[in-house]
Write a protein that binds this DNA or RNA. Structure first.
Length: 849
RNA sequence: GCGAGCGUGGCGGAAUAGGUAGACGCACUGGACUUAAAAUCCAGUGACCAUAUGGUCGUGGGGGUUCAAGUCCCCCCGCUCGUACCA
C-alpha cells in the first residue's frame, strides 16, 4: 500500500485547482449567490495560527456552500497600509512598499499551501494606488456632501509613534501598539460624520438577526443613546449662558452647582479675568483625566467667582465650578450637579460643602429623619420641587422639559456617546488625503483629473514625525482654483478607512470606478463574515457606517454590509519559562515523564498558564512548520475538531497527532480495498449489516449538515469520525457489499471534503470516481434509512434507570408496558403494583411506585 | 459598579420543544505484534461499593417545580470578556 504522503498530494491538488480555475467566480443569474468573507490580514510577513483558524473556518463554509449549489464568492486580499511597514523602514532601511510587497508574496505562498478555495483573480492590496485612488474620490464626495469636515480637537497623541490615536486605540491611557503614555494635544484633523448615522446604526442593529448578541450589545453601548434635555443656565455677570445635558431634568430643584469641563469654551473666557486660573487648572491633575483612569483620581474642582441663574427659581444663583470629572466629549462638556441623586455630585458636594437638597423620595410625601449618606438614584416621587411635587420621576421629567421649553430655557433632546470618526494620521504609509490648502482660496479638494494623489516614493524616514511633512517637492503644488502656490495636506487616512469598504471592492477589484454596480448588486451584501471579536466595535461599526454613507452618495445600493457574522475565539497554547524567568518556545521543549526540558541546554522548564498565542510570551507554533510536517489537511482538521469556533481553543501537539492519525487511517481505509471497478451507486440492502451502514451514513449526512449550518464544526467532525469507525467495522464479502461500501465511503469523503479537501480529492480519485470531488454535490439523505424499526428503550423506576428493552416500533403501549414490567432487573423493584406508568413513545418509559 | 457569557470525567468537549449524562477525541492502563522501543491493532477508562448480575453518588454550591432537571425557576459562589465618573 502506498503511504499517505500529504505534501505530495496537497501540492498535486493545489496545482489542479489552480490550473482548472476551480474556484473562479462570476455572476451566474440562475444560481443563488453566496459571498463568504474572512477578515483580510495585515501582511506582517508570516501567517499565524489565528489566520489558520479564521481561514479554515471560511474555507469550510465556502466549499460546503459550493457543494450545495451556491454560486460562491470567496476572495482574499491585503490590508497593506499601516505602521509596521514604516517601522521596518526606519529600523531596516527598507522602503515600506518593498517590505510590504515582499510580505504579501510570503504570506500568499503560505496561504496557498493551506489549500484555501480563494478566487485569486479577485485579490486586492489596499496600498496600491489602484485601490486607494477610489478612496480619495469617495472622501471628496463625502466632503462635498458634508460627511467629511475638518475641525480642531483635543486628540490622543502618542509621543512614541508621533501620531494621533483613536479613542479605541488608547488602552488604559497607553497606545495600543507602543504602550506609551498618551498625551492630550490640540490639533486640526479630518473627521467623518458617523454621528449623522448614530440613530440608523443603532436602529439597524435590530435587523441583524445573524450577528452575535454580544457584538450588537457592544455596538449599542458604544453608540450610547440617552434621552434627556438641554438646559440653559444664564450667567448674567458675563452675559453668557451654559448649556448642559441632563437625563434627569426632574431633579433641577435639587441643583446646587454647575461644573464645567476644563476644556469647556467658557473656561477660556473666564481666564481673561482670572489670571491665576491656569495655575489652578494644573492642580486638577489633568494629565490623568483621560477617560480610562478618571475613576482612580479624586474628584476635585476650582470654584469660579461666577454664578448661574436657576431656570425655575427666581433669584436663586448657583455656583460654577471647573471640575476634573466632567468630560468635554460627552454631552455639552458641562453639567448641573444634584448631589442628592447622583453619587459623583454627592461626593463633590461633600468635599466642597455644597447644599444637598433631596427632591426625590421613595414614598409619596416621605419625611426623612436622618441625612442622606449616599445619593438616592432610584425612582420615586418628587418633593421640594414646586410644581413637580408629587409627580413620579418619569412624569416630572416630561413636565420639567415642557416648562423649560415654555421658558425658552431648554428643550427635550437625545444624546449619543458616539463621536465623529477622526481619520487623520500623521504618517507616511497610508492613503494621502486629497486636499490642497491655498492661502487665498482656502481648502480645496484635488481635482478628479489629478487623482490619485500618489505617495512620493523617494522619502526620508530618519526625521521624527510624519516623513511627508518634510517632502517639499511633494507638498508644494499649485492651487487648483487660482493656480498660485499652495500646499498639500500631509496627513494620511486611518487604516480603518481601507477596511471599511474592501468587501465591496472585492466584487470587482479592477473596475475603473470604485464600485461596479452590476457586480456589487449581485454579490452584496456579504452573506457570511468571519473574524476576531476584537473588531466588534471598531472595524465593524466603521464598515456599517461607511456603507450607509456610500449609499447616501449613491455609490452602493445596500445599507448593511454583513448579513451574518461569526466571531472566532483565540488560539491558545501552554506557556513555558526557564529558571531565569525567560519565556521558551514550545518547539524548544521536550517532554519527559510529565516534566519539561529545554532542548538547547537540558535545563528543566516550568509550564505556565495556557494563554493566547503571542510573540512576547513565545507560546507560538508556526503554521508553516506544522503544514510541512503533517500537511495542511491535518492542520485544518485539528483546528476545527476540538472546540466550537466561537470559543478559545488550545493548540496541542497531541491534538495534531490525533488529527494526523485519523487522516492516516482514512488513507488506509481507502486503499484497503480495490474499488476501481466498483460502480458508485446506491443499491438495495440485503441484510441487517447493510441496513446498518446505510443508516449510519444517512444519519451522519443529516447530522453533519445540521452541524455545519449551525456553525458547530467540532460536532460535524465528531459525527464524521463516528461514521468512519462504522465504515472500518463493515465487512465486505460479496460484490454487493463492495458497492455498498464504496457508496458509503464516497459519501463520507464528500462530508470530509470541506475540512480536508486534498486527501478527499486524492481518495476520490483513488476509488476511481472521475470528477473532482470539488464539483460533487452535497449528498441527500434517504429518509427511509433514518427510521430504524428496532430501538432500545430505557426503563426508569421513579426516574432512575433500571434497565432497557429492545422494542419494535410496531409494538403498542400495552405490549411495551408488559415487557418493561417483566424486565428482570425492573421486576425485583416492584413489590406493589405501580402507581403510574409514563410512556414517551420511542424515548423512555418511567414506572412510578 | 454595570452588562454579557460560562461553570459537565485527568483534559478538550457532546447532550437543551425537560426523557439512557459523558458522544467524538486527547491522555492514561492492560494486552497483541517486536530482540526491544516507536508506530499500529484490540480492550478498558466519572467516583465509590461489590467476585459479579448490580448498587450508591455525580453536570460550581444550596433550595424549588416535575413521573423525570446538565437543561426550567429562586438564592449564592467562582471564572472570562466587554464597559465605565456617560451627567
Amino acid at each position: 500500500m502506498i503511504k499517505y504522503n500529504p505534501l505530495k498530494i496537497e501540492q498535486k491538488w493545489q496545482n489542479f485547482w489552480e490550473k482548472n480555475n476551480t474556484f473562479f467566480s462570476k455572476i451566474k443569474k440562475n444560481l443563488k449567490k453566496y459571498y463568504i468573507l474572512e477578515m483580510f490580514p495585515y501582511p506582517s510577513g508570516d501567517i499565524h495560527m489565528g489566520h489558520v483558524r479564521n481561514y479554515t473556518l471560511g474555507d469550510l463554509v465556502a466549499r460546503y456552500k459550493r457543494a450545495n449549489g451556491f454560486n460562491v464568492l470567496h476572495p482574499m486580499g491585503w490590508d497593506s497600509f499601516g505602521l509596521p511597514a514604516e517601522n521596518a523602514a526606519i529600523s531596516n532601511k527598507v522602503h515600506p512598499k518593498t517590505w510590504t510587497e515582499k510580505n504579501i508574496q510570503n504570506m500568499k505562498t503560505q496561504l496557498k499551501k493551506m489549500g484555501l478555495s480563494y478566487d485569486w483573480t479577485k485579490e486586492l492590496s489596499t496600498c496600491s494606488s489602484n485601490y486607494y485612488k477610489h478612496e480619495q474620490k469617495i472622501f471628496i464626495e463625502f466632503y462635498k456632501k458634508g460627511l467629511a469636515y475638518q475641525k480642531e480637537t483635543i486628540v490622543n497623541w502618542d509621543p512614541v509613534e508621533q501620531t494621533v490615536l483613536a479613542n479605541e486605540q488608547v488602552i488604559e491611557g497607553r497606545g495600543w501598539r507602543s504602550d506609551a503614555k498618551i498625551e492630550k494635544k490640540r490639533m486640526k484633523g479630518w473627521f467623518l460624520k458617523i454621528t449623522d448615522f448614530a440613530e440608523e446604526l443603532l436602529e439597524d442593529l435590530k435587523a441583524l438577526k445573524n450577528w452575535p448578541e454580544k457584538v450588537k450589545l457592544m455596538q449599542k453601548n458604544w453608540i450610547g443613546k440617552s434621552f434627556g434635555a438641554h438646559i440653559d443656565f444664564h450667567v448674567e455677570e458675563i452675559n453668557d449662558k451654559i448649556t448642559v445635558f441632563s437625563t434627569r431634568p426632574d431633579t433641577l430643584f435639587g441643583a446646587s452647582f454647575i461644573a464645567l469641563s476644563p476644556d469647556h469654551k467658557l473656561v477660556n473666557k473666564i481666564k481673561k479675568n482670572y489670571p491665576s486660573l491656569n495655575k489652578e487648572l494644573k492642580k486638577l491633575n489633568l494629565n490623568n483625566t483621560n477617560e480610562q483612569n478618571l475613576d482612580r483620581i479624586e474628584k476635585i474642582g476650582i470654584k469660579t467667582s461666577l454664578k448661574a441663574s436657576h431656570p425655575f427659581i427666581k433669584n436663586k444663583l448657583i455656583p460654577i465650578f471647573i471640575a476634573n470629572f466632567v468630560l468635554i466629549d460627552y454631552g455639552t462638556g458641562a453639567i448641573f450637579g444634584c448631589p442628592a441623586h447622583d453619587q459623583r455630585d454627592f461626593d463633590f458636594a461633600k468635599k466642597y460643602n455644597l447644599e444637598i437638597i433631596e427632591v426625590v423620595c421613595k414614598e409619596e410625601n416621605q419625611k426623612r429623619k436622618s441625612k442622606l449618606t449616599k445619593a438616592y438614584t432610584e425612582s420615586g416621587y418628587l418633593t421640594n420641587s414646586d410644581f413637580l411635587n408629587g409627580l413620579t420621576v418619569n412624569d416630572a421629567i416630561e413636565v420639567s422639559i415642557k416648562r423649560l421649553e415654555e421658558l425658552n430655557l431648554g428643550s427635550k433632546s437625545i444624546n449619543y456617546r458616539l463621536k465623529d470618526w477622526g481619520v487623520s494620521r500623521q504618517r507616511y504609509w497610508g492613503c494621502p488625503i486629497p486636499i490642497i490648502y491655498c492661502k487665498n482660496c482656502g481648502i480645496q479638494t484635488v481635482p478628479e483629473k489629478d487623482l490619485p494623489v500618489k505617495l512620493p516614493e523617494n522619502i526620508n524616514f530618519q526625521n521624527s514625525g510624519n516623513p511627508l511633512s518634510s517632502q517639499s517637492d511633494w507638498i508644494n503644488v499649485k492651487c487648483p482654483k487660482c493656480s498660485k502656490d499652495a500646499k498639500r495636506e500631509t496627513d494620511t487616512f486611518d487604516t480603518f478607512f481601507e477596511s471599511s469598504w474592501y468587501f465591496a471592492r472585492f466584487t470587482d477589484p479592477n473596475h475603473e470606478d470604485a464600485i461596479n454596480e452590476k457586480q456589487a448588486d449581485y454579490w452584496l451584501p456579504v452573506d457570511q463574515y468571519i473574524g476576531g471579536v476584537e473588531h466588534a466595535v471598531l472595524h465593524l461599526l466603521y464598515s456599517r457606517f461607511f456603507i450607509k454613507a456610500m449609499n447616501r452618495i449613491k455609490l452602493i445600493n445596500i445599507s448593511e454590509p454583513f448579513k451574518s457574522l461569526q466571531t472566532q475565539g483565540m488560539v491558545c497554547h501552554q506557556t513555558y519559562k526557564n529558571n531565569n524567568n525567560e519565556w521558551i518556545f514550545p518547539k524548544d521543549i521536550r517532554k519527559l515523564n510529565d516534566k519539561f526540558f529545554s532542548i538547547n541546554d537540558n535545563q528543566m522548564v516550568l509550564p505556565g498558564r495556557i494563554e493566547k498565542m503571542s510573540k512576547s510570551k513565545k507560546n507560538v507554533v508556526d503554521p508553516n512548520i506544522i503544514i510541512s510536517k503533517y500537511g495542511a489537511d491535518t492542520a485544518r482538521f485539528f483546528i476545527l475538531s476540538d472546540s466550537p469556533p466561537q470559543r478559545d481553543m488550545e493548540w496541542t501537539d497531541e491534538g495534531v497527532e490525533g488529527a494526523s492519525r485519523f487522516l492516516n487511517k482514512v488513507w488506509q481505509l481507502i486503499n484497503s480495498n480495490d474499488f476501481t471497478n466498483i460502480p458508485f451507486q446506491q443499491v438495495k440492502h440485503i441484510n441487517e449489516n447493510d441496513f446498518h451502514i446505510f443508516s449510519c451514513t444517512f444519519k451522519t449526512i443529516e447530522k453533519v449538515t445540521k452541524a455545519i449550518d449551525d456553525f458547530h464544526f467540532n460536532i460535524a467532525i465528531a459525527n464524521i469520525r463516528s461514521l468512519f469507525n462504522e465504515l472500518n467495522l463493515y465487512k465486505t464479502e460479496t460484490e454487493n457489499d463492495m458497492i455498498i461500501k464504496k457508496f458509503c465511503i464516497s459519501n463520507f469523503l464528500i462530508l470530509l471534503n470541506p475540512i480536508c479537501p486534498h486527501i478527499c480529492e486524492e481518495a476520490w480519485h483513488v476509488i476511481n470516481n472521475k470528477q473532482s470531488i470539488s464539483d460533487i454535490s452535497w449528498p441527500r439523505v434517504d429518509i427511509s434509512y433514518l427510521d430504524e424499526d428496532q430501538i432500545t428503550l430505557p426503563i426508569q423506576i421513579n426516574g432512575k434507570r433500571r434497565g432497557e428493552i429492545k422494542i419494535s416500533k410496531s409494538f403498542n403501549e400495552k405490549e411495551i408496558q408488559n415487557l418493561a414490567l417483566n424486565h428482570k432487573n425492573v421486576s425485583r423493584f416492584l413489590n406493589e403494583p405501580p402507581k403510574k406508568i409514563i410512556y414517551i413513545p420511542n424515548k423512555i418509559i418511567n414506572i412510578v411506585i
